[in-house]
Simulated scan of single mutants.
Amino acid sequence: MIIPEYGRTLTPEEWRPVVDEMLEATHIIFTTHENSDGDGLGSQVALALALKALGKEVAIFNPTEVPPNYLFLKELHEINLFRDRDEESMQEFFLADLLVVLDANLHDRIGRLWPHVEFARQMSRLKVLCIDHHLEPEDFADITVCETYASSTGELVCDLVTALELRTGQQLFTPEVASALYAAIMTDTGSFRFPKTTPYTYRLAGMLVEKGADPELVYDRIYNALTPEALKLLGLSLSNIKIIENGLISWLFITQEMLEQTGSKLFDTDLIIRYLLSVPTVKVAVLLVEMQDGRCKVSFRSRGKIYVNQLAKHYGGGGHMNAAGCLLRMSAEKAQLVILEDVRKFTLEQVDS
């Protein structure tokens, strides 16, 4: 497992084990976490395009659908939804000799895919690579590269594509690859404003623009693509936000009834949490969404040096210092009681320390 210290990036030589596996493989599958975002999707599309240019058979299979505001990435490369009983999905896994997991460092983050990955590893020669930047990686892959201080997985993939170029002598940063990676980095840095946005991150963004990425177009496709249903859900949600503990905590619970009332989908909830942290006094924001399968999706956000990934880890999740999440296998009523009490204690301890 390669986990460099803060303030440096992986060199082409350090990428050698990953490059070796990718160049030796013939059929490669890419995947990312459930409820995919710009970083996971942009990283996998960019890397798939780069390796396809090197003559590899590539395919992308994800555990959940692509959110509407990222559908433009499907125009750059096909992104398939993995289905348990779909023959094409299963055949792809048994033909593949390499699976690349991007933007997820816990095996259960890829959801329904994981049991099939385990089975394919037992029955064939499938190897697993993990490339990620979140805290506390799990050692489930044959090779794991986790640069926890990178701004995004897209930042890491930029360096990996550079290493592939140096090894093969082939130009791989096409406008399509550059656009996908720009989307990855832009979204996971909050449009270049989150704490891990470094001078190196800005230099990479500039390089990607030089290679053909259109910042205005990418931003517009991602952030100006709300559906009417999502806007209805936003309006309904804003009226239900609760501010507690003298303004330190903001809290919102989205029920299945709210989703049905507005005709919105689970991915429509992802942009709402930013409003929970918009009140200056709020240190910790919590968004809890009731899911159809009985689970509850929980998203945490924080300001300053408040490690909400520790909250998420307590429930089997993970993430960044200021942005993390988890899935709870309990009723919505119980989840609210349990999470809210833990968030109260955690926040007060963090503020007082």
Score class of each variant (00 low, 15 high):
R8N: 10
V19W: 05
E21Q: 14
L23R: 02
F30K: 08
T32A: 09
G40W: 07
V45Q: 06
L49P: 02
L49Y: 04
L51P: 13
V58F: 06
P63C: 10
P63F: 07
Y70Q: 10
E75M: 08
L76N: 03
I79E: 01
R83H: 02
E88C: 00
Q91Y: 11
A96D: 06
D97F: 00
D103I: 07
A104N: 00
I131E: 04
I131M: 03
E138G: 01
I143F: 07
I143P: 11
Y149A: 15
C158Q: 08
E176W: 10
T187Q: 14
G190F: 06
R193Q: 14
P199R: 12
P199E: 10
T201R: 11
L208N: 07
E210F: 04
L217M: 15
Y223F: 13
Y223W: 00
A225R: 10
E229G: 06
G235Q: 08
G235C: 04
S237G: 09
S239W: 11
I243C: 02
I243L: 02
T255A: 11
Q256W: 03
L259E: 04
L266H: 11
F267Q: 14
V282W: 07
M291Q: 14
D293G: 07
R295A: 02
S302D: 13
K305V: 14
M321F: 01
A335Q: 11
V338Y: 06
I339Y: 01
L340F: 05
E341P: 01
D342T: 05
Q350I: 09
